[in-house]
């Protein structure tokens, strides 16, 4: 498989700290337009830190983040979101006291005239998980784990994103539900939206990814096609422990 031509997101030699501890060491990666990229690694390898850095939730010590060739390294988080970077965190980040519908409305209300945000009115938003229409009035607090994951991804879609950052989207789901979520991710990709997915399960990653990066102790140790990763013994050993 060849890389799509245009670059959607590019990280160049990123170094990020949490407190005094250096987590990311010269991380470079690239997500092409319409491409689904998985970042695989064990817990604590630096996957979430990579995504938090892209979102601006953690300050970057050095390096560069470019979104559609535009330098966003120092941009505040909300500006990155409004540019079209959707984000669904590992803990889903559902607002507990807001109804599901209110969770979706936030982005639409913030959209400036002429901005891209689709809002909850766009049919594409609900085409990924039509199930969420069944519990729109429920409060975030009362959702099951799987429902929270669906709401988090749907909510990110309300930004009409060019890229979605999904942190462990399949974690904690029953195997049959994982298959449902993999279909959903493929549906998002079919809309032409790029994806960067942090995933600790290599098998799940190979089911959705065009390309993979493996990260360990904050360093990218492999990049390539899904079938190449199984032939690379070092990577297999590191990721599977």
């Amino acid at each position: 498989m060849t890389d799509p031509g245009a670059t959607m997101l590019e990280l160049a030699r990123l170094n990020t700290f949490r407190g005094p501890a250096q987590i990311l060491r010269d991380v470079s990666l690239r997500v092409g337009a319409g491409e689904a990229v998985c970042l695989v690694g064990r817990n604590g390898a630096g996957k979430t830190t990579t995504i938090d850095s892209i979102m601006g939730l953690l300050p970057v010590r050095s390096g560069r983040i470019a979104f559609r060739q535009r330098d966003i390294t120092r941009l505040p988080t909300h500006r990155r979101a409004l540019l079209g970077i959707g984000y669904a965190p590992e803990d889903c980040g559902i607002f507990p006291d807001l109804s599901v519908e209110e969770n979706f409305q936030i982005t639409a209300w913030l959209a400036r005239p002429g901005a891209a945000a689709a809002g909850a009115g766009d049919a594409r938003v609900f085409s990924v998980f039509p199930e969420v229409k069944g519990f729109m009035t429920r409060r975030g607090l009362h959702l099951s784990g799987g429902q929270k994951k669906m709401v988090a991804i749907t909510r990110a879609m309300t930004l009409a994103p060019s890229i979605l950052l999904l942190d462990e989207p399949f974690e904690g789901l029953a195997p049959v539900v994982v298959t449902r979520f993999i279909e959903a991710v493929r549906a998002i990709k079919a809309m032409g939206i790029s994806l960067l997915i942090a995933e600790s399960n290599l098998v799940n990653a190979t089911r959705v990814a065009d390309r993979l990066y493996a990260i360990d102790r904050g360093e990218i140790i492999f990049q390539g096609n899904p079938h190449d990763v199984f032939r690379n013994e070092d990577v297999m050993k590191t990721i599977r422990g």
Partner: peptide, 8 residues
């Protein structure tokens, strides 16, 4: 954090 990540 999540509010910011949605554009707030």
């Amino acid at each position: 954090r999540m509010a910011a990540a949605l554009g707030v």
